[in-house]
Amino acid sequence: TTIEWNGTKITVDNPQKAKELAKKIAKKLGLTVKVHGNTITIE
């Protein structure tokens, strides 16, 4: 699972952990999480 935001890509083996990490990042930055299959985008 890949997390993408602002040109940065982070690959996380565990999809559940990836989703939790994305939510934490999005919350800190005041952004939203969008899931597209194996890609999680923070916008």
Rank of each mutant, 00 (worst) to 15 (best):
K28G: 04
W5I: 10
I3R: 02
W5S: 04
K34E: 05
I40V: 05
P15V: 10
W5Y: 11
T1E: 05
G37M: 05
N38G: 06
I42A: 01
E4L: 12
N6K: 09
I10M: 06
T11P: 03
T32R: 07
A22R: 01
G37W: 03
G7V: 11
K24S: 08
I25M: 04
G7E: 07
N6F: 14
I42C: 02
A26M: 06
K28S: 07
K9D: 02
D13E: 13
K19H: 14
T2K: 06
K17T: 09
Q16K: 15
L31S: 03
T1G: 08
T1I: 15
A26I: 04
K34A: 07
L21T: 02
D13L: 14
L31W: 11
D13S: 15
K23G: 07
N38A: 07
V35I: 14
T2P: 06
K28C: 08
V12E: 01
N14Y: 03
K24P: 00
L21I: 13
A26Q: 05
A26T: 04
K17S: 06
T39G: 03
I25R: 00
I25K: 00
L31R: 03
T32G: 05
E4T: 08
P15D: 05
N38I: 05
T32V: 14
V12D: 00
K23A: 12
L21Q: 02
T1H: 09
V12K: 02
W5L: 08
T8E: 06
G7Q: 08
A22C: 02
P15F: 15
I10L: 08
I3S: 06
T11R: 10
G30A: 02
D13W: 15
W5F: 13
K24Y: 15
V33I: 14
K9A: 07
K24W: 15
E43P: 06
Q16L: 11
T8N: 15
T2W: 09
G30F: 02
I3E: 05
T41Q: 07
A22M: 02
V12Q: 02
T39V: 14
V33P: 02
A18L: 04
K27L: 14
N14W: 05
T32K: 12
A26G: 05
W5M: 06
H36W: 08
G7H: 08
I25D: 00
L21A: 02
P15Q: 06
W5H: 05
P15A: 11
E4P: 06
K27A: 12
H36T: 10
P15K: 10
K27C: 08
K19E: 10
T8H: 15
I25G: 00
K24C: 14
E20I: 12
K24N: 07
T11S: 09
T39W: 07
G37T: 02
I3D: 05
I40F: 03
G37A: 05
A22D: 00
T2N: 08
L31D: 01
K17L: 12
K27E: 15
K34N: 08
V12C: 13
L29A: 05
K19Q: 11
K24M: 12
N38E: 03
Q16D: 11
